[in-house]
């Protein structure tokens, strides 16, 4: 029986392969989802009533159901009404929509916590609603919710596990196939360490961001 150290080196290439899929999805989803969340949160705050209602239903649906089911439905059930999307597109759309549903609520909460006086002062200075949102409210709200955003980001990394549902292999799935063929759970331990490293790096990045952009200026 090989030691965990030797096994680590043996299992690493395959697991790194999975890690790369995990990280690519993470990067792309964050790159699209984060700006989108700010826009959606702004619209939830100052948008017209009907739009707010639509966004409310959207948030309710995506936060109220497991991501796994969302993936399965979009992948397997949408084609029955004639919409066939490729696996990568399904992953992209579902993850972006899901992440945006959570993160936009977080940012909206941050916006709600900003004093009303600021709106009035900005209005008195002749700024439009969009300007107030873009220049005053949104930047403050985003800073305020950095810690929560950090946990959301870590959750996203872990949720990428679910792409297995549409036949793609991530880090954990590769670990499972190693466990299946090698009959020992060490691959899980290796995967555990890799996840912890990513989560730690993310936490570090966010704590630096928090220091750089403190909530109260």
């Amino acid at each position: 029986m090989t030691t965990i150290g030797e096994y680590f080196l043996e299992a690493l290439p395959l697991l790194l392969d999975g890690l790369i899929s995990t990280l690519i999805i993470f990067a792309v989803v964050v790159a699209i989802g984060f700006p989108l969340s700010i826009i959606v949160a702004s619209l939830k705050t100052i948008g017209p009533k009907w739009l707010r209602r639509v966004l409310g239903v959207y948030t309710w649906i995506f936060r109220g159901t497991p991501l796994l089911l969302q993936l399965v439905l979009v992948y397997y059930a949408l084609p029955t009404i004639g919409v066939v999307l490729s696996d990568n597109l399904v992953i992209l759309i579902v993850y972006v929509l899901s992440v945006t549903a959570y993160e936009s609520e977080v940012i909206r909460g941050g916006m709600a916590g900003i004093e009303n006086g600021q709106y009035e002062a900005a209005k008195a200075l002749g700024m439009s609603r969009v300007q107030i949102m873009r220049r005053i409210i949104a930047p403050q709200a985003v800073r305020k919710v950095l810690p929560t955003t950090c946990s959301e980001a870590i959750i996203l990394i872990k949720d990428t596990t679910l792409i297995a549902a549409v036949g793609e292999f991530d880090l954990l799935r590769h670990a499972t196939s190693l466990v299946t063929s090698d009959f020992r759970i060490d691959a899980y331990v290796v995967a555990l360490i890799l996840y912890l490293i990513i989560a730690s790096i993310l936490t570090l990045i966010f704590s630096k961001l928090e220091k750089r952009y403190p909530a109260s200026i």
């Binding site: 029986m1 030691t3 555990l192």
Partner: peptide, 8 residues
């Protein structure tokens, strides 16, 4: 890692 080593 220790837990892992303990397992093996």
């Amino acid at each position: 890692a220790l837990v892992g080593a303990a397992c093996t």
